[in-house]
């Protein structure tokens, strides 16, 4: 859905550092009142007014979905990134008013599952915290296996172990602890669904291992938000709105469209949902695809691009926008 629809005005009620990299933010509705309920695994897109630039970053909701009083998200600081997480860490203070989107779930539980097996890496823990809240209200069966770099960087690990004893298993990289995935998958009851959220390598590893062990594709769920990649600036012609726009080095094509008042559709802004898919009318150069949405055949055909993460290198690009 495009900008301007289904937004929530919120006030920052708490900014709490969790460890040296992760800070937690609590939002309440500006002027009071309930926030919408949501389902575990949902994210919200947080709008940031950073100088003259509007940044829109998706963050998984980690609070109890049944708690309509407040939403919580955790943001990991990325010093090499384009600045969204740094803005959250450095500029967002208690009492500040912000705009966030209604919750959107691209990583929802399959409620048919007899058991939910959750595999988290690093900051990928956050959607699972909301899902575990949701499942405990309905006596759902789950296990969480959580891989962290060190104990001090393992956000929420101790709290979760205390809250769900025997269901939460933490693995520390610096102590050479590793999830024994093959054995874990082999010992699950029939009807188990697997959920993985973490670094790309971990997601690929889980999909590949499950496939090799004969798990049905539909029983393995993953979520990975990509941050838009930086790259060479480029120029785009827009056929519908009859504009020529410039995409900056650290700007995504979608952000450039928005900065030029083009009402482009989006949902996840991370190359996953397909909402921003745009038709390429003319391309003299190379489309640089970073999304998870287009198939290999579609990429080869070169007729579609996902402006939220993908870029262009070459002479002329004309989009149906």
């Amino acid at each position: 859905m495009s900008a301007g629809t289904a937004k929530l005005n919120v006030t920052v009620a708490e900014v709490k550092p969790i460890n040296e990299l992760v800070t937690r933010f609590k939002f309440v509705r500006t002027g009071g009142g309930d926030l919408p309920t949501f389902s575990g695994g949902a994210h919200t897109v947080v709008e940031m007014e950073d100088g003259g630039q509007t940044r829109l970053n998706p963050y998984s909701l980690m609070s109890d979905p049944a708690d309509r009083g407040a939403y919580m998200v955790s943001v990991r600081r990325d010093d090499e990134g384009r600045g969204g997480s740094l803005f959250m860490h450095n500029n967002v203070k208690e009492g500040m008013e912000m705009v966030i989107s209604n919750p959107v779930n691209l990583f929802s539980l399959d409620l048919r599952a007899k058991k939910h097996l959750m595999l988290a890496g690093g900051i990928g823990i956050t959607p699972f915290i909301a899902q575990m809240h949701q499942l405990s209200h309905t006596n759902g069966l789950f296990d969480l296996h959580y891989s962290v770099r060190t104990a001090s960087l393992g956000s929420y690990a101790e709290e979760l172990q205390a809250q769900y004893p025997n269901r939460v298993h933490v693995y520390h990289d610096d102590q050479d602890e590793r999830i024994n995935l093959e054995e874990l998958l082999d010992t699950q009851p029939l009807g188990t669904h697997i959920y993985v959220c973490g670094p790309k390598g971990m997601i690929d590893w889980v999909h590949k291992t499950a496939e090799e062990l004969g798990w049905p594709r539909e029983a393995v769920h993953s979520e990975e938000f990509l941050a838009p990649a930086s790259g060479q600036p480029f120029e785009v012609k827009l056929a519908q709105s009859n504009k020529v726009i410039q995409v900056g080095e650290h700007q995504s094509l979608l952000e450039a469209l928005e900065a030029n008042d083009v009402d482009a559709p989006y949902l996840c802004r991370g190359g996953a949902c397909g909402q921003c898919e745009t038709t390429v009318i003319e391309c003299d150069g190379k489309l640089v695809h970073y999304d998870h949405w287009l198939t290999d055949e579609q990429r080869e055909a070169g007729k579609l691009i996902m402006p939220c993460v993908s870029r262009f290198e070459g002479k002329t690009l004309v989009l149906d926008q």
């Binding site: 629809t5 919750p103 949902l267």
Partner: peptide
Amino acid sequence: LKFLLNLQQGA
């Protein structure tokens, strides 16, 4: 179907 899969809460 593509439209509905992305149907947003509140919209």
